[in-house]
Each structure stands twice: as structure tokens, then as C-alpha cells.
Design a binder for these strands. Structure first.
Lengths: 140, 140
DNA sequence: GGATATTATTTCGAATTCGAAATATAATTT
DNA sequence: AAATTATATTTCGAATTCGAAATAATATCC
């Protein structure tokens, strides 16, 4: 019983379910999961280097280059050169990008919260604790 | 505090970490995540229709068709026609596929268990309970 | 200060994934 | 029993992802 991997299976299923929900939420605006992830980070943290966005969105940087290209084509973000370090490209939302997120995000947030809110506050806090403990171990 | 989505973020991160670990584990044998997922289901449940494998591995059936093709090319599985229903294709491990899993699986299981074992037994059970509760809500 | 190592990003080709349409068969309706 | 609807699978083209190599700039070492 205790030597099986059910816990991980359940974890992957739950995450998959959440991802599908987000995808559903966001595909109406012609965005993919990673597109939205990148916009979301920029929306909340302000302009950021490519690398930092990668770390938040959890995809390879080569994939992020592609995501950034498509978002630039859609005129939702723009790319600036960092004055401090000429290797670095700073990404920021355009006016249009910000407007889109102003429109999408509150609805998305409500939708996601309604998922979480099947848990009471103590359960939510406990879940966070357990996942963090697991996740910490999992990085190498 | 309570209206934010941190819990989901942590969930997605933990799942991502687990997936990366599995990928690492399994890429040494030239397998991808979905390849391994399919083999694992067949290894544990015996021969199954394509559809049932899909449901376990959590990818679209069009993607599963591709996965099955590549595993057939590697001679790890084979495809039989169901005698009951001529729409259905039953997939089963070849001798070679079974041997591979006999080799891989115990190591994989240990590796995965060592991740889970940062949690004590009560924590593990509680995590399962919370994830199930969340996941249930998340399906539509 | 030049050589070497490190970091940030992009490019490339290949692999994986998806959704929608196509195909084939089975089940249900009328 | 024909027509309709539902289910299982595959095919197709496009989108996304990856890892490895390339490029460019900075930091470190000698």
C-alpha cells in the first residue's frame, strides 16, 4: 500500500485537471497556456527579462523564445534591451496587452478561486504546505 | 490573501517537478513521458483498448495514436483487433516490452517513492485526500 | 589584459501534442 | 431494416515543446 505511487498519480491528475481548466478559460482569447502564463507574470510583476519569465512559466527558454515571438506578433508585449546588461532582453506588456489582461484576469481569477474554494482555509494552507514539502524534495 | 491563486501555482510547480523527475528517469531508455505512461498502464493492467490507455495517460487520443505507433516501431507493444467490437484495437506489451519494464520499473518506483517519502504516512494520506477533493471539483 | 568560463538569448531540426475532420463500426431510433 | 446517433480510432496540418548548438555579452581567472 505505502510503496505505491498513487499519490503522484493523483497529483499529476489534479494538475492536469487544473491545466485543462485554465486552457479552456484562456483559449477563448486565442491564447495558449504558456502565452497566458507569460502575460500573467508580466501583468503582476511588471517588465522582466526572458529568463525570469521562463522560471515562472516552467518551460525551456527555447520554448519561451517562441512564445515571446507569437505574443509580439499579436502586439501584446514588446521587447526592450536592458541598459545594464546587453545580453538581456526585457519584456513588457503593451497597452493592448494590459487591456486584454484587465479584461481576462478577473474572470480567470474568479474561475480558479471557485476551484480552490472547495477546500476550507485550513485545508488550503495544509495543501500548500504538503505540496511545497514534496516539491522541494523533487528538485534534484 | 485568500483570493489569490498561490495554491494552484504551487500545485502546478510540484507536478512539473515530478514530471521532470520521471522524464529524467525514463529518457535514459529513449522513452518520453507518454511512452512510459502507456507502457506503465499496460504493465500493470494488462492488454487494453487505446481509449483506456488515453484516459490513464491524460493525452488526446490523436496523440495516443502517435505514441502507440512509436512504441510499435520500437517493438515494445503490439496491436490486436478486438473480437468483440471491430472498432476497438487492443494494445499489449510484447515480450521485449515486458522485459524492458521489468528492468526499468523497480528503479523508477524506488526513485519516485523516495520523493514521496519526505512525507510521513499521515501527510501522504492527507495530501491524497486534498488533491482528490480539488481534482474532483476541477473536472467541469 | 587576454584567455576562459559563465550567463542570456536565439536558432535549428526533431519530437510531441493538439483539435478537427475522416473512417469504420456499433447502437438506437423510428 | 433503414436512418440516425454514438463510439473508437486514425489521419492531417498546425502549434507547441524540447535539447543541442550557435551567438553574444559579461564575469572570472591567471
Amino acid at each position: 500500500m505505502s510503496q505505491d505511487l498513487k499519490t503522484l498519480t493523483i497529483l499529476l491528475r489534479a494538475a492536469n485537471a487544473v491545466e485543462h481548466r485554465i486552457k479552456e478559460d484562456v483559449s477563448m482569447y486565442g491564447l495558449g497556456l504558456s502565452d497566458f502564463g507569460a502575460l500573467e507574470v508580466l501583468y503582476h510583476k511588471g517588465p522582466l527579462p526572458v529568463q525570469s519569465i521562463c522560471e515562472k512559466v516552467l518551460i525551456a527558454n527555447s520554448s519561451m523564445s517562441y512564445v515571446i515571438d507569437t505574443l509580439i506578433k499579436k502586439q501584446l508585449i514588446k521587447k526592450l534591451k536592458s541598459p545594464d546588461d546587453r545580453r538581456v532582453h526585457i519584456i513588457e506588456l503593451t497597452e493592448e496587452g494590459r487591456k486584454l489582461m484587465d479584461e481576462i484576469y478577473p474572470k480567470h481569477q474568479d474561475h480558479m478561486r471557485s476551484m480552490i474554494d472547495v477546500l476550507d482555509q485550513n485545508e488550503e494552507i495544509e495543501l500548500q504546505r504538503l505540496l511545497k514539502k514534496l516539491g522541494k524534495q523533487s528538485k534534484k
